[in-house]
């Protein structure tokens, strides 16, 4: 089954949310992206206060695309992967990334819902959201917001996730477009990138 954005156009941004078990899952996913992958990716990974600083470095291992911890008003660039910094919410505007220290949402800062909802506002049909492993329900409301604005939502197959709660919550909350293993997710994202070259 070939997934397409309803607009038929190329995706402008991919947003990914991950929690418990996310570091391994993200690394596995990002490692399988083509070296010339050109769609910008913004990630919220919940993190424990202790492992705040080293997250970028440990996630970068084996990943060819460049990872960057977001600074205020960073512009979205093709082929860049943007990671929400510890203790800040990450939001998306039409042409840049925003940070805020608003209170945590459902105990989370950064919050996946906050990222997804703002991205859905900014990019509508040209957005792809991905929910990976996690032991809470963050991202479910955000995934519904992406669907409501015409974007696509892909979810890690709960049975293959270290913690199935978060993917299952997204699936229960909204009509997601595909439920896939990590390799199948990577293949799917690579395919979107092929579309965008023609």
């Amino acid at each position: 089954m070939a997934l397409r954005l309803t607009s038929g156009s190329q995706p402008a941004l991919i947003v990914i949310g991950a929690s418990l078990g996310g570091l391994m899952a993200l690394r596995e996913l990002l490692q399988q992206l083509r070296p010339d992958f050109s769609i910008p990716i913004a990630i919220v990974q919940h993190r424990h206060r202790d492992l705040q600083q080293q997250l970028v470095a440990s996630m970068q291992q084996g990943v060819r695309l460049l990872l960057r911890e977001v600074e205020d008003k960073d512009e979205l660039r093709p082929g860049q992967i943007y990671l929400a910094p510890a203790d800040y919410h990450l939001l998306v505007e039409a042409d840049c990334l925003l940070l805020s220290i608003d209170p945590p949402v459902s105990y989370a800062r950064p919050s996946i819902d906050v990222l997804f909802e703002s991205a859905a506002d900014a990019y509508g049909e040209r957005l792809i959201g991905v929910i990976l492993t996690g032991a809470n329900q963050d991202g479910a409301i955000g995934a519904a917001a992406i669907k409501a604005k015409g974007g696509l939502v892909l979810v890690q197959e709960p049975a293959t996730a270290e913690s199935a709660v978060m993917p299952a919550a997204a699936i229960a909350q909204t009509c997601v477009d595909a439920v896939l293993s990590l390799s199948a997710l990577a293949a799917q994202l690579n395919e979107f990138c092929e579309v965008c070259e023609f």
Binding site: L98, S100, D102, V114, E117, S118
Partner: peptide, 9 residues
């Protein structure tokens, strides 16, 4: 004010 965060509030 930055729009995305203001809009949320």
């Amino acid at each position: 004010y930055a729009r995305a965060s203001l809009k949320r509030r």
